[in-house]
């Protein structure tokens, strides 16, 4: 696989975006968005992480196999959290056996 050289301009642009998003997430946290504070904070964090993964870590220019590994890892983490959350979120719907 021939190597893709990313120009420093792209890195600097990503860097600026990351800094702006960091300022944005701090600002958003100080504003009362009701139930939306946490989703906004998470959305910004996911965006920042995606920028780092795609550009700094070259996934945008890498093989599909690497992208598959990244996607698989995220999917498995979400599986873990979803499965456990399924327990905690429904625990008080009815009494559990033995209580």
């Amino acid at each position: 696989m021939s190597e893709h050289i990313v120009s420093p301009g792209v890195y600097v642009a990503v860097f600026v975006a990351l800094m702006v998003l960091t300022a944005g997430t701090v600002f958003a946290a100080t504003v009362d968005l009701g139930m939306w504070n946490t989703p906004v904070a998470l959305l910004i964090a996911v965006t920042k992480a995606a920028l780092v993964v795609l550009f700094f870590m070259h996934v945008k220019y890498s093989s599909r196999l690497v992208a598959l590994a990244v996607g698989g890892g995220i999917l498995w983490l979400l599986t873990l959290i979803a499965g456990v959350a399924a327990d905690y979120l429904t625990r008080n719907w009815v009494g559990t056996p033995g209580t």
Binding site: T25, V26, A29, L42
Partner: peptide
């Protein structure tokens, strides 16, 4: 970069809860 990404999530989760109250 991976270590950086972990911090990108730790920062809002730990530092930015309920700052607007």
């Amino acid at each position: 970069h991976f270590v950086d990404i972990i911090w990108i999530f730790l920062f809002p989760l730990l530092y930015l809860i309920g700052r607007h109250h």
